[in-house]
Write a protein that binds this DNA or RNA. Structure first.
Lengths: 198, 198
DNA sequence: GGTGTGATGTTTACGTTGTCAACATTATGA
DNA sequence: TCATAATGTTGACAACGTAAACATCACACC
């Protein structure tokens, strides 16, 4: 390796450094110049890989969505024939991801940070989150666990509940129970009683 | 009025200007110097009223919470004896407030913008939002509409659902139905079937 | 194997921003 | 009336995002 003029994979290094810096001190502390210094390049080198700071942050957010979707898919494929249990697991894992990566999670959904509309790939990958939940809801419908014709609304409710719960807890506005997984899971059960076939 | 050295109520003027600027072009476009210019004072005058930019933004967020809580209380007091209808109205009005003041709403809950922990008054006023929902849930419990011993969890679910739904719609991740109020309300009904006494 | 061309990184520079320190003006109450 | 606190201004500074001009390198092509 040694000190060479070309870094090798500066783009990936910048994304890693940004993710680390976000985890350490929050998005607002991330600076192009700081990242460059951390990676050991000049303060304008990042502009060879990202049009501007927003584009870099959008790429970091996209990485976060990628990791989340992979995680959800693992859960889903681990429970091929148990939609109810699977849904509960998805829900818990989703909230755990948010609470385990607080600043990163916030960046993924934030608007102050960058103009989402300029980065349509973010909406695409975010929609895959919806689809992970939706697939299991549909399984549940086929098993006559959940009411037919309401698959989209049920999925919206679950996602919104997971999202809102995560953020309210992150904001310190809801107390975190000792038995976290049970508390989170029971919230879903409570709400999802209304999803069932009669 | 005229041009005088002392502004009169610079603090309020700055908050107004900040709210307006946020509504127009988003939080990230708000700048101390821009606000000062807009209000017609020098670029450091704001520091006589706010310790720094974060403190100013926190005050703007607090104003937003104040308005939201007032709005919710109006609804609650307009339905003294109909907890079920009242809850639905609260829910819809909450989401409407968020969608009607997108950037302001995001600021109220954002973390990137400023360090919430430094502004405990924000948590206090935010807890009043919880209490508005909670009061009605308790009414419903007294009327044997909702399950006893689950008041807090039910309230958390409702708030989280409203919050998550608002943000997902703001992010363009959920479609906005034509008949918005009905769609939002039905989401609550769907979920809250599980809240009922059997 | 040389070579030149595009990709990648550096240097320098500029305007904007948040914020501090020193100073100016005004309001207020003893 | 006048000292003093409250409020506003001027000027300065460092950090930041980013553009332009330049330097170095990798690699495809003769």
């Amino acid at each position: 390796m040694g000190n060479r003029y070309h870094h090798g994979d500066l783009r990936a290094a910048l994304l890693d450094a940004a993710a680390a810096m976000i985890a350490e001190s929050g998005v607002e502390q991330v600076t192009i110049r700081g990242l460059a210094q951390r990676v050991g390049v000049s303060h304008t080198a990042p502009y060879r890989h990202f049009a501007n700071k927003n584009a870099l942050l959008a790429a970091v957010a996209e990485d976060g969505f990628d990791r989340l979707v992979v995680r959800l898919r693992e859960i889903r494929e681990a429970h091929p024939a148990e939609p109810e249990l699977c849904l509960r697991q998805l829900f818990v894992v989703y909230v755990e991801f948010a609470l385990g990566n607080p600043t990163h999670y916030r960046l993924m959904y934030g608007e102050e940070v960058f103009n989402r509309k300029e980065y349509p790939e973010l909406s695409v990958i975010a929609h895959q989150v919806f689809n992970e939940f939706f697939a299991v809801v549909q399984q549940g419908q086929q098993a006559h666990l959940y009411r037919a014709n309401l698959g989209v609304k049920i999925t919206c409710s679950i996602w919104a509940l997971a999202h809102g719960l995560s953020l309210l807890v992150l904001d310190g506005m809801l107390p975190v129970a000792d038995d976290f997984e049970n508390a989170v899971g029971s919230l879903l059960i409570l709400a999802s009683d209304g999803f069932r076939e009669k």
